[in-house]
């Protein structure tokens, strides 16, 4: 079985979520006597490609034409479909990031492939081809069978470990023959906060709710997040009253996340909020209300005032990090 993986780069660096996807594909290839072709689109310097081999790519298809300097679903999906057809691959693996979500369905439509997004399991091929995904924003799982010959899986970031494989991947320069003249889309400006951990891909998340009493107190959340190397998040009411940007809202109508650690401070734990965070490996709830529903969903709990508890945790985190260093 030949497996195509989209190896997404951000400013020339392969993303951790892409390396997870390569590791994931390599595990499937090993079980099915297959091989992994990582597809790099856009400009990446040659010395970076070794990293894809390290996580199990046998081959790299490199699409580095100028038309790929900016990311558009229309062009990137064409390259991915081109690579799939060229390799005669049966399986396409894409990480379910914002860019992944943009190109996965377009690629599937070009290939007439069945597609499943939000995948959290390796495929089970005992009887057909089945994968598990999250549904209802994390309130349930669904097992889904794909019945087309080519299959596209968009896997949830942080769901699969990085596994080193130490292969030396051969690099093939490819051209999908796309002209930039026909493009209807034009990028004007890309703005990324530098030095901040991206919430959707973060391994550690510190999150605040209305119990934080106001945006002026968020320095406590940010300080703990900075020390731990975590992303910051918030509950829906907090983003609705504009204490924090909407992009930080986690929950059923916000972002669904799956970090290793989710620390919820002053968030009661309404069902809509829990839906977006319940897949976190370890949950800590800090709330002064002992009846807060979050304590039923948490692994660790502190019943106490955030403004008394947080400074102690921040101090402890500081000394822990200085010992580690």
């Amino acid at each position: 079985m030949k497996i195509i993986v989209f190896a997404e780069n951000q400013e020339g660096q392969f993303k951790k979520s892409s390396l997870e996807a390569v590791s994931y594909a390599a595990q499937i290839a090993a079980a099915h006597n297959g091989s992994v072709i990582a597809v790099s689109i856009g400009h990446v310097s040659n010395d970076k490609f070794a990293e894809l081999g390290k996580y199990g790519a046998d081959q790299i298809f490199n699409y580095s034409q100028e038309v790929f300097n900016t990311f558009f679903g229309e062009t990137y999906s064409k390259a991915l479909a081109h690579a799939t057809k060229n390799a005669g691959a049966e399986l396409v693996i894409i990480s379910n990031t914002y860019s992944g979500k943009t190109i996965a369905p377009r690629t599937a439509a070009q290939l007439g492939a069945g597609i499943v997004s939000g995948v959290i399991s390796y495929p089970n091929t005992d009887n057909g081809f089945n994968v598990r995904r999250t549904v209802f924003s994390g309130k349930a799982f669904a097992d889904v069978a794909i019945n087309t010959s080519i299959k596209v899986l968009a896997i949830t970031p942080n769901s699969f470990s990085l596994i080193e494989n130490n292969k030396t991947a051969s690099i093939e320069n490819m051209d999908a023959g796309i002209s930039s003249d026909t493009l209807a889309s034009k990028s004007i400006e890309v703005a990324r906060a530098s030095g901040k951990v991206v919430l959707t891909e973060a391994e550690l998340v510190v999150s605040g709710g209305r119990g934080m009493k106001g945006p002026e107190n968020w320095h406590l959340i940010e300080s703990l997040a900075d020390i731990l190397g975590a992303a910051t998040a918030c509950s829906k009411p907090v983003s609705d009253i504009h204490w924090r940007p909407h992009s930080e809202h986690v929950g059923q109508t916000g972002i669904t996340i799956k970090p290793n650690l989710y620390i919820a401070i002053g968030i009661s734990g309404a069902i809509q909020h829990l839906a977006g965070v319940s897949a976190s490996k370890v949950i800590v709830a800090i709330n002064k209300d002992p009846e807060a529903p979050f304590f039923k969903a948490a692994d660790y709990g502190i019943v106490g005032d955030a403004f008394e508890v947080l400074p102690k945790i921040i101090e402890a985190a500081k000394s822990f990090k200085s010992q580690q260093a």
Partner: peptide, 26 residues
Amino acid sequence: NTQTTSFENPPAKGACKLIDPANAAD
């Protein structure tokens, strides 16, 4: 192209380990 064959609710969390707020640093 796809068919959902079954659903499952996530397993219930085990008991929450409570930490005394005085020892929050733990």
